[in-house]
Design a binder for these strands. Structure first.
Length: 346
DNA sequence: AAGTGATTCAACCGCCTTCTG
DNA sequence: CCAGAAGGCGGTTGAATCACT
């Protein structure tokens, strides 16, 4: 029954690795491999380290072809795009950046990229606020001058509080809905499709019937495999139509809403998106230009028409996009969503 | 030069999923 | 089928380093 404990916690060294320890671990793995058992590894080498610690050290530092620091603009864009698409799935994001580790990307995001984006956004907000305030002040000053009673003490005008973030589309909306809408719009802009953007088409020439921003990012083989593993896990994401003709369609064509409800979902739940994400969405809108953002909810125009694949090239991963342009062209052109045609007879 | 706060990043922690007996 | 270990992952921590006063 079961197995022996992985390591004697009391007899295990913690903290930074010494060059000697690094050398031992590296030499052994390069000569013998991991042997498929990290827990047994330190004992074999004579290291007083936990197997997990060895694994981490190897993967994040000693492994060949590891790059540290010096993230390029292109890498920044990929990280941002993927973070918006799939959230903090650092291992998946790392799979798209050769030589980068999930830990590195996570650190880079938390310490620099996030601040970079938020800083950019705040600057723009301040500029917008300043512009709005100036206009408002001028108008109120004019009105005050018109209605000023002689001898009355002039008071500081009351400025209505401006929204913390500029509303994207409609006002008077549930903030959560607005967040979702923003995320949705951004995802659409990034080239993705929601389950309600298209009717089901089993005759599509697109071999994989790729639809989502995830699909866009996942087009590259490695990431695709990762996604297939995750998506095909019944505990993570449930296909919305189990009678679909293609199994590939089944597993790629999952229901975003259902997916969002589960704890291990691909999107980590739109409801559960980190609060900062909505702020970042606005940052990215500024990054890519709000005018270019697609309002997929109410324009009445086809999402296919309104979402330009050319836009994605600006994200810095044309190699991902190129494989999808063909898929995109084979997508059915639909302007409105008909649930019955999409889900089939209930 | 010293003190202090901010930043970076390697490493740990704990949770979840997968695997094994 | 079940219990528990291994593997994997994301979040967090804290020592080292940097930047500023």
């Amino acid at each position: 029954m079961g197995r022996a404990p992985c390591c004697d916690k009391a007899n295990v060294k913690k903290g930074p690795w010494s060059p000697e320890e690094d050398a031992k671990l590296k030499a052994y793995i390069e000569a013998n491999g991991t042997g498929g058992n990290w827990i047994a590894l330190p004992q074999k080498i004579g290291l007083k380290r936990c197997g997990k610690s060895c694994r981490l050290r190897w993967l994040n530092y000693l492994r060949p072809n590891i790059k540290h620091g010096g993230f390029s603009e292109e890498e920044d864009n990929i990280i941002c795009s993927l973070f918006i698409s799939i959230g903090s799935r650092w291992s998946i994001i790392a799979a798209q950046l050769p030589g980068r580790t999930d830990n590195d990307i996570k650190n880079y995001w938390n310490t620099r990229l996030k601040k970079k984006l938020l800083g950019k956004q705040r600057k723009e907000q301040q500029a917008r606020r300043a512009a709005s305030c100036l206009t408002l002040k001028q108008e109120m000053k004019r009105e005050n001058e018109n209605y000023m009673i002689p001898g009355m003490v002039s008071q500081a005008p009351y400025w209505p509080q401006l929204p913390a973030v500029m509303p994207l589309t409609s006002t008077n909306q549930d903030p959560q809905l607005k967040d979702k809408e923003s995320i949705r719009n951004l995802l659409v802009k990034l080239g993705g499709r929601f389950s309600d953007d298209y009717p089901q088409s089993s005759t599509s020439t697109n071999p994989m019937n790729l639809r989502y921003p995830l699909d866009v990012s996942f087009a590259q083989d490695q990431l695709y495999e990762n996604s297939m593993n995750m998506i095909s896990s019944p505990s993570s994401i449930s296909p919305i139509n189990s009678t679909c003709t293609s199994e590939v369609i089944n597993i790629t064509h999952f229901n975003v809403n259902e997916a969002a409800a589960g704890p291990n979902n691909m999107f980590q739940g739109l409801d559960g998106f980190p609060a900062e994400l909505s702020e970042l969405i606005y940052s990215l809108e500024g990054f890519y230009g709000t005018d270019n953002m697609v309002d997929g909810s109410s324009t009445g125009t086809s999402s296919v028409e309104s979402s330009s694949w050319g836009d994605i090239n600006s994200l810095g991963y044309p190699q991902i996009v190129s494989g999808f342009e063909a898929c995109q062209q084979s997508m059915p052109q639909v302007s409105t969503f008909d649930e019955s045609s999409y889900f089939g007879p209930q």
